[in-house]
Design a protein around this nucleic acid. Structure first.
Length: 467
RNA sequence: GCCAAGGUAGCUUAGAGGCGAAGCGGUGGACUGCAGAUCCAUUACACGGGAGUUCAAAUCUCUCCCUUGGCUCCA
């Protein structure tokens, strides 16, 4: 039984899809005008694991994500660098998809581009106008917040509050907080790209409408999970609720709202002006994707997470512990080591307990830190028994399988398969190791140490066994 | 000002009324020709301050202090 925290009710709820075991899930995708940063990575890795676990738990998940490829930021950026907006958008979309692939985010079933859903967007706006929730001005078409009584229910705000702190409100709007559904083209300044014809003249959609048009297209007016970063709660998700529920007359649009916490850099929000903006590219120069994934999953998805070199290093060390154990097990299974079978039955039972704890942690709002905690608990125990030669090969095999299984759920490959391209390199290392062991037989320590230290310069670490 | 999320051992994080955690790091030891990994011990009678509820509070209530974020685009 999975419990998840619903931002709408501000509490954990028992998860039950609207229909059977089918889940319709939508997560807000990026605006493709620049490289994706590690904050994006945090969010999408979190949802990747959530989807992995939902699937693992027997649900069928359709995971939909939008790509915002029409937006003021894209136009601005395109102008700056003298590129076509659409080309720019496609370029960064491709980059985003590459980044996600490298990070092991691979569960999105469909990426829906905003520009490919213009008719659906126009149609939704038409409905809102017809039902009296939207009105046209000479600047565009706006959603009338005052008409939607429940506006603010997700972010826990009311209209008075929302209207207080807006400086210099646009007087052509009925309420200061009314947001654009359709922006009319400003004749002089704008390019001809990224404008479309509509009943309200040429122009382009507002920010919020693409998501509801897309979800309505593929899911209908009601679906199970909507996710995104914490910063999207207001105004973006609030606006989505207003649009969709007003248009369809059905409530609620979404059964469960899930939001990921921020990634900060040294306690501060990441921003270009502070100079602490780190792209996924930058990150991968120094750390492998799985170290970053481990770093992300070491904190609960809703908590803020602080990024620094030191913490990444800690993550690297922690993750190594898991890989080391698998490596040790592989060696033990390969060798003709005599290991005791005494507590075999006890182990089988123990492993089933570990599995249970792992799933309890994940069931509890996808508590990955707690899940890792159970993994480390068993690792410590097993290491002790390996040291004491008090474990059977059967138990080791089962343990290895279990950890690999956990890895699949969390998005790691703990199986350490030999890649073809690595084979030669590995053979060469074997050769050096052989030579070195002969030197060691002859107690040629200087030379054997030199081999070890020079391999270390190449990031290849040899660890001698005590025999 | 309003709304949110937080303050748990040196660092990073779980937990959410009673049996007190995990990782990283430090120190000492076992094992090693050395190093590393691993194990053991220790750092560690940890839960921001103060009141209250309770047989029992990191956990609930109140209050105060501090941090971060949102209220304009943002994952």
């Amino acid at each position: 039984m999975i419990k998840l925290y619903n931002t709408m009710t501000r509490r954990k709820e028992i998860f039950k899809p609207r229909e059977g075991n089918k889940i319709k899930m939508f997560v807000c995708g990026p605006t493709v005008y620049d490289h994706s940063h590690i904050g994006h990575a945090r969010t999408y890795i979190s949802f990747d694991v959530i989807v992995r676990y939902l699937k693992y738990s027997g649900f069928t998940v359709f995971y939909l994500q939008n790509i915002t490829d029409l937006d003021d930021k894209i136009l601005k950026r395109a102008e700056e660098i003298g590129s076509s907006p659409l080309e720019l958008a496609r370029r960064y979309e491709e980059k985003y998809l590459q980044d996600m692939k490298v990070l092991g985010v691979e569960n999105v079933n469909f990426y829906a581009r905003a520009t490919e859903h213009i008719p659906e967007i126009i149609n939704q706006i038409k409905i809102l106008v017809k039902k009296g929730f939207a009105y046209e001005t000479d600047k565009g078409v706006y959603f009338d917040e005052a008409k939607f009584k429940e506006f603010g229910k997700l972010s826990n705000r009311n209209l008075e509050e929302l209207n207080v702190h807006r400086i210099g409100p646009d007087t052509s709007k009925r309420n200061p907080g009314d947001f654009a559904l359709w922006k009319k083209r400003k004749i002089e300044s704008e390019e001809l790209e990224m404008v479309w014809d509509s009943p309200w003249g040429t122009g382009r959609p507002g920010w919020h409408i693409e998501d509801t048009a897309i979800t309505d297209t593929y899911f209908g007016p009601q679906y199970d999970i909507h996710g995104g970063g914490l910063d999207l709660i207001f105004p973006h998700h609030e606006a989505e609720i207003a649009q969709m529920e007003a248009a369809s007359g059905k409530n609620p649009m979404v059964k469960y709202w899930m939001h990921t916490g921020f990634l900060n850099v040294k306690g501060e929000k990441m921003s270009k002006s502070l100079g602490n903006f780190i792209t996924i590219n930058d990150l991968l120069q120094e750390y492998s994707p799985d170290v970053f994934r481990f770093f992300v999953l070491s904190t609960h998805y809703r908590s803020p997470i602080d990024f620094s070199q030191e913490i990444l290093h800690q993550s690297q060390q922690g993750l190594q512990r898991i890989y080391k154990l698998i490596e040790t097990i592989n060696e033990l299974l390969d060798e003709n080591t005599a290991i005791s079978m005494e507590n075999d039955q006890e182990y089988i039972y123990k492993l089933s307990e570990v599995r249970k704890e792992f799933f309890e942690a994940m069931d509890n709002d996808f508590n990955t830190p707690s899940a890792f905690s159970t993994i480390f608990d068993i690792i410590r125990e097993v290491n002790r028994d390996i040291n004491d030669s008090n474990i059977s090969k059967n138990a080791l095999t089962k343990l290895k399988a279990l950890i690999i299984e956990f890895g699949i759920v969390l998005g790691f490959d703990f199986s350490l398969k030999n890649e073809n391209e690595q084979e030669l390199q590995e053979d060469l290392i074997e050769l050096l190791k052989d030579v070195r062991s002969k030197l060691r037989e002859k107690k040629e320590w200087d030379l054997s140490d030199e081999i070890r230290s020079r391999l270390k310069e190449l990031d290849i670490v040899l660890e001698d066994k005590s025999t």
